[in-house]
């Protein structure tokens, strides 16, 4: 509204508004994309893997796939059954209720076809354990902010 702005041509003004709008949309869009998956899948940084398919994630979490492609044993971490992260992971990502997954683990353990996943109490503990264990995989709620550790988020492709 000041006298200086009346001298600026319309084009740069529109351009800066446009860029602002673009930046805002991109931020919102990326936020929306991240929010579409309620949890982040984490693996130990030593793993070369950058993304995981839903099929692989299901095979890993039902103890059917026991090895990464480089031969490293997969160590599976989970959060407590009553936690929001676990419930969202089961229902919204894997597509089963937590109790169904628990039955699958029970079957794997007591038929000797797999070992049970390691249950940790908190997301902080999960992050620490995944950092310390080669071949580890786990999940945390998407909005979690945490210190940089030797874990990385891998993309889920459905």
């Amino acid at each position: 509204m000041g006298s200086s702005s009346s001298n600026v041509t319309k084009y740069p003004h529109t351009f800066s508004s446009f860029s602002l709008w673009l930046l805002l949309s991109l931020t919102l869009l990326s936020g929306w994309c991240r929010g579409a998956e309620p949890v982040d899948i984490l693996v130990n940084s030593a793993q070369a893997k950058e993304e995981v398919t839903l099929r692989e994630l299901r095979a890993i979490y039902t103890m059917k796939q026991r090895l990464w492609s480089d031969g490293e044993t997969i160590t599976v971490f989970v959060l407590p059954e009553a936690s929001v992260a676990h419930r969202d992971f089961c229902k919204k990502i894997l597509g089963v209720f937590p109790r169904q997954l628990k039955s699958v683990w029970y079957r794997a353990v007591y038929t000797g076809t797999g070992v049970a996943p390691i249950e940790v109490k908190t997301e902080q503990e999960l992050i620490e354990r995944v950092s310390q264990t080669k071949g580890a995989i786990g999940y945390v709620l998407a909005e979690r902010k945490y210190e940089k550790t030797t874990t990385k988020i891998i993309k889920l492709t459905r």
Binding site: K64, R66, L67, T111, G112, T113
Partner: peptide, 16 residues
Amino acid sequence: FSLPLAQTIDSQIGMR
């Protein structure tokens, strides 16, 4: 006792 005899990334053979 359960013992896997052969394992690959997507398959397994074992015995009990």
